[in-house]
């Protein structure tokens, strides 16, 4: 089972290393980890996707809370959050394939952000499942590079972490 965990941490050197080290040491499987600043420049938000049962999710939450630099930890309910991920996919294609790829990107509501004689770079921001689908569809062509940001999430409505 996948758990989305939102963590607010002090924005200072060494924090990310402490947290990623914690996961390695305790054998937690992290699917994705996205870090960025927040409305307060002294605080960063880490959004984690953790694979495991409820025991693992509880352990991850508790171990994170134990860290001195961790200000807040919240396990987010999948149905009550807005999740987004950004992807860039570079596809190598022949001129004949170009139209097909553009069609796929249009249907998926992605965007072509770069083009050359032999490649197209597609950008899309959406739920991780939609990103997976895009990558799957494009994999029928020659994908040469993929960059994904990892999931970020916020609670719906007025709720905050």
């Amino acid at each position: 089972m996948k758990h989305t965990i939102s963590v607010l941490v002090e924005n200072k050197a060494g924090v990310l290393s402490r947290i990623s080290g914690l996961f390695a040491r305790r054998g937690f499987n992290i699917d994705s980890l996205a870090v960025g600043t927040t409305e307060d420049k002294n605080i960063s938000r880490i959004t984690l996707l953790v694979d495991g049962d409820d025991y693992i999710a509880e352990q991850v939450t508790k171990q994170l809370n134990k860290q001195i630099d961790v200000i807040k930890v919240r396990k987010l309910d999948r149905d009550e959050i807005t999740r987004r991920e950004l992807v860039l996919v570079k596809v190598k294609m022949s001129v004949a394939q170009r139209g097909e790829i553009i069609d796929i990107v249009k249907i998926m509501q992605g965007e072509i952000v770069d083009i050359s004689h032999t490649t197209l770079t597609v950008e899309m921001s959406d739920k991780p499942e939609k990103i997976d689908l895009l990558v799957e569809l494009l994999s029928h062509y020659n994908i040469v590079e993929v960059a994904r940001t990892g999931t970020i999430a916020l609670q719906k409505g007025a709720e905050i972490v």
Binding site: A13, G14, S17, R18, G21, R25, I68
Partner: peptide, 14 residues
């Protein structure tokens, strides 16, 4: 040393 001792310290400062 802060890196090496990280798993064995409650907290560390450089």
């Amino acid at each position: 040393i802060t890196g090496a001792a990280e798993p064995f310290t409650k907290y560390s400062y450089l």
